[in-house]
């Protein structure tokens, strides 16, 4: 067993985990944060995307022990007390969500993108979403949602 300490969605955690556990298992099974999904489990679908120190990563391919000392945000950490984050609002209003299975991962990819590039172009959005599979929307509404999210965030609809 390994001891890890990290911050997730603003809260400090100290856990004792199995050495070979994935970050995804830590988040879903130990912390019961089930917003993060497991799709393929082998790095291809992006449903398990979380932000670690501001970067989008596949939690299914990250060793849980490697969470030690990091700052993590999952989909549960996007919304502020006073309401949904701009990226969430934009996805709802622009039909970026259908079945919703890919959505938590996509939101976390987009969240990292907007922190890095506040006003991304089509190519940047496309490069970001290449690691997130969506079987429902055909992506067009997702592109619209991301552009709208950037606009909302730029207007100062900020969140914690």
């Amino acid at each position: 067993m390994v001891n890890i300490k990290f911050k997730i969605n603003g809260q400090k955690k100290a856990l004792n985990i199995h050495d070979d556990m994935t970050a995804l298992a830590v988040i879903r099974s130990l912390l019961k944060l089930t917003g993060t999904k497991e799709g393929c489990g082998i790095g291809e679908c992006g449903a398990c995307t979380i932000n670690v120190d501001g970067k989008a990563v596949n939690s299914c391919l990250m060793l849980g022990a490697q969470l030690d000392g990091t700052t993590v945000v999952t989909v549960e950490g996007l919304a502020a007390k006073d309401g949904l984050a701009p990226v969430q609002k934009a996805f709802i209003e622009n039909h970026g969500v259908q079945c919703g299975f890919c959505t938590p991962g996509i939101l976390m990819s987009v969240n990292a993108l907007l922190q890095e590039i506040p006003d991304p172009g089509h190519e940047e959005i496309s490069k970001t979403l290449a690691g997130n599979l969506c079987r429902c929307t055909g992506y067009s509404q997702i592109f619209t949602s991301v552009k709208e999210a950037a606009r909302l965030a730029g207007q100062g609809d900020q969140h914690g």
Binding site: D19, I42, C60
Partner: peptide, 24 residues
């Protein structure tokens, strides 16, 4: 040895890794 883990974790997950230690 594990660095980014994007190859190693596939084996960790499937149980195919037959080593005693994972060195990060």
């Amino acid at each position: 040895i594990i660095a980014g883990g994007t190859d190693v974790m596939i084996d960790v997950r499937s149980g195919a890794l037959d080593k005693k230690y994972l060195l990060d």
